[in-house]
Design a protein around this nucleic acid. Structure first.
Lengths: 203, 203
DNA sequence: AACCTGTCGTAGCACTCACTCCAATTCGGA
DNA sequence: TCCGAATTGGAGTGAGTGCTACGACAGGTT
């Protein structure tokens, strides 16, 4: 009992299923993600899917969690500091674009999460609750950063700014999906909007 | 041949089907909207649905169009001018909240449209294209208004502001669905953001 | 060797899906 | 009154749904 050894393709299969499910669910939503399609796309039979995941609900929830974890770890990595001295505004914009690029690199949890937010079916999927919790996590992190950055603002105004940030990110993601909106330009714009709103709030 | 007369409950049935489909599709999305459910909810058999609409795709597209037309007509109605003299900023916020309230009164096309934007399945539904066209219509109207209101801004900046407005509206709608966000407060916030960004752009 | 546990393949369950066929019914116009 | 078009009723299509039962087979452990 030195350690838990993997038999056959155990963990690898799990990952393949997750990857397939992420791709399909990101494209077609909750109802549109059929087990048979995930099976076909991952090359594993349905029974294997049900061996690794309790049911469809469990699978979708796992997709959201995995994708979010990947993004969140990516964020924790040392933020590269721009060499040249820049104004605080430029630094802010730079940071914004960094977060944004990371977000749009692994957008599965975001797209799927937003879809689940929009659909409110009778019995809500676990993944929806998970995504709402994820949002709270993101909000509290943003709150900490903004409290340190906008030292002149009252807590209420910080809260408004945090809400605004989420609103802008979601909206930008949607706009990106709807028409072809340049992402860097988009994140520059929402950074500008946050700074502009902060100034308005200080008045 | 004086005029086309309705037999039986022709047009009325169509409306009932549309209403039922709007409610279900708004709650469950494209895939989640089953004909049998629409049938049960409208009290009409499947054959009636297929008499009035070519197929499911056609039905969903009709739901989006109908809901949008209703909202757009609502907007064209004479905008009530606030009695007391207010600052331009307050007027702007007031107008924003008016549009917003109308939007959230008949949100079927918005919710469904955003869902369709997020899902990009292989063969995209007609309703998705329709919704993208609707967005263009809304954008050009916003552009006209902003051009008249922000007389100091260059066309490029106006364009940024128009994009920002759509981004903010979509994001607010999502935030409203996600957590319980007060709408008036939300629209006040995005009005502030637009004004703040406009000031930043003028710098 | 025998054993055990985790993984895969096959087949199939009851159910729902979008959609169709056609006969019955309802009504306006002649 | 009867015609014919509009609309509805209901049964039924093949395909697909989530999910399960169960046996085969692979390792590693003893």
């Amino acid at each position: 009992m030195v350690g838990i050894k993997k038999r056959a393709h155990g963990e690898a299969s799990r990952q393949r299923i997750l990857a397939a499910a992420a791709e399909i669910a990101g494209e077609r939503g909750y109802e549109g993600t059929s087990i048979s399609l995930v099976s076909k796309c991952s090359g594993l039979p349905a029974s294997s899917i049900y061996h690794h995941f309790k049911d469809k609900d469990d699978l979708i929830a796992a997709v959201v969690q995995t994708s979010f974890d990947r993004w969140f770890h990516l964020l924790q990595e040392p933020t590269e500091v721009p060499e040249e001295a820049e104004t605080p505004e430029e630094l802010f914009q730079h940071a914004m674009q960094g977060i944004g690029r990371a977000l749009f690199d692994s957008p599965d949890f975001l797209r799927l999460g937003l879809m689940l937010v929009l659909e409110h079916r009778p019995e809500e999927p676990t993944a929806r609750k998970d995504f709402l919790n994820i949002r709270k996590t993101v909000m509290s992190h943003t709150r900490i950063i903004y409290t340190a950055y906008f030292t002149d603002l009252k807590p209420d105004d910080i809260e408004s700014l945090v809400t605004l940030t989420l609103v802008l990110s979601d909206g930008l993601f949607l706009a990106h999906e709807a028409e072809n909106l340049d992402l860097d330009q988009g994140f520059g714009l929402i950074a500008l909007a946050i700074l502009g709103t902060a100034e308005q709030l200080m008045k």
